[in-house]
């Protein structure tokens, strides 16, 4: 096969995959512009009725705000745990640092339902079930790997010589780590934090297993709404959620790419 053919085939396959993956997303977005009070396709009339309903309904607003209340501390906590861990893995001679890395990634390697069931038992024992603190901790376990991956990868690209040069010039190790390496990692740390935020904001399995009746995040509210009566309002909610998280994720990736 000629290189050219392979090239064209590659583009076709990629286009197909992207289309199949994005089709439901586009469909949801299109449906959210319907003015009907029930699902029809194609919609009989168009308008922003679904969006007006979302914004007018206090339940959605409170779900969004609860998602923020969880995701912000999860992001901060994940960064606070993952950045020092990344230094231990990438910049120390600590024995077992590779095991620490593997352990740090466990949160995304273990199937989430298995993890949720395990936590269910532990939380019941500790009285954390249905509590805010419990949810923050559980989501942090999921979000730490995301930050850890982003920051360790970025750290591998910051030459150790920069720290050594700073120390040779008279800086303490702490100053070299903070002023040089951490400073150079800052875009990646922020990007990792944003991705941790999105991970927690989007999370639906843990909240179903571990959340109490009054703890409703946005994804949980969408799930409930889909379960207890199909209303086209969720298309508007989903579209807003997708737009919001994509914007944040794109900003984060863009930030990580800058200053390379």
């Amino acid at each position: 096969m000629s290189d050219r053919l392979v090239h064209v085939l590659g583009i076709v396959v990629a286009a197909l995959v992207v289309t199949i993956l994005l089709a439901p997303v586009l469909l949801t977005a299109v449906l959210s512009l319907s003015s009907d009070s029930y699902f029809t396709f194609p919609p009989d009339s168009w308008g922003l009725r679904q969006y007006r309903e979302v914004l007018g309904d206090a339940r959605w607003a409170s779900a969004v705000s609860y998602s923020f209340e969880l995701a912000v501390p999860v992001a901060l906590l994940s960064v606070a745990i993952a950045v020092p861990t990344a230094f231990a893995i990438g910049r120390s001679r600590l024995p077992g640092r590779h095991a620490i890395y593997a352990g740090g990634l466990a949160g995304i390697v273990v199937p989430i339902s298995a993890f949720a069931i395990a936590l269910y038992g532990v939380f019941a024992e500790l009285g954390l079930h249905g509590t805010y603190v419990g949810l923050v901790l559980a989501n942090t376990v999921l979000a730490v790997p995301v930050v850890l991956i982003v920051v360790t990868a970025a750290m591998a690209r910051v030459p150790v010589e920069l720290e050594l040069a700073a120390m040779a010039a008279g800086a303490s190790r702490r100053r070299a780590w903070l002023g040089i390496t951490t400073r150079l990692l800052l875009p990646s740390i922020v990007a990792g934090g944003v991705l941790a935020f999105v991970t927690s904001f989007d999370e639906v399995v843990l909240i179903v297993f571990l959340g109490g009746v009054d703890q409703t995040t946005l994804p949980k509210a969408i799930l409930d709404s889909a379960r207890f009566g199909v209303s086209p309002v969720i298309t508007a909610v989903s579209t807003l959620l997708m737009l919001g998280t994509s914007a944040v994720a794109i900003a984060a990736v863009g930030l990580a790419r800058r200053r390379r």
């Binding site: 030459p159 010589e161 920069l162 050594l164 040069a165 700073a166 120390m167 040779a168 010039a169 008279g170 800086a171 303490s172 190790r173 040089i180 400073r183 150079l184 200053r259």
Partner: peptide, 20 residues
């Protein structure tokens, strides 16, 4: 002593300038 206490200067093969 730590490097910072020694009062030496060092030049590296790959410059190791602070990019920021």
């Amino acid at each position: 002593m730590t490097p910072a206490e020694r009062d030496v200067g060092m030049v590296f093969q790959h410059y190791a300038l602070f990019p920021h």
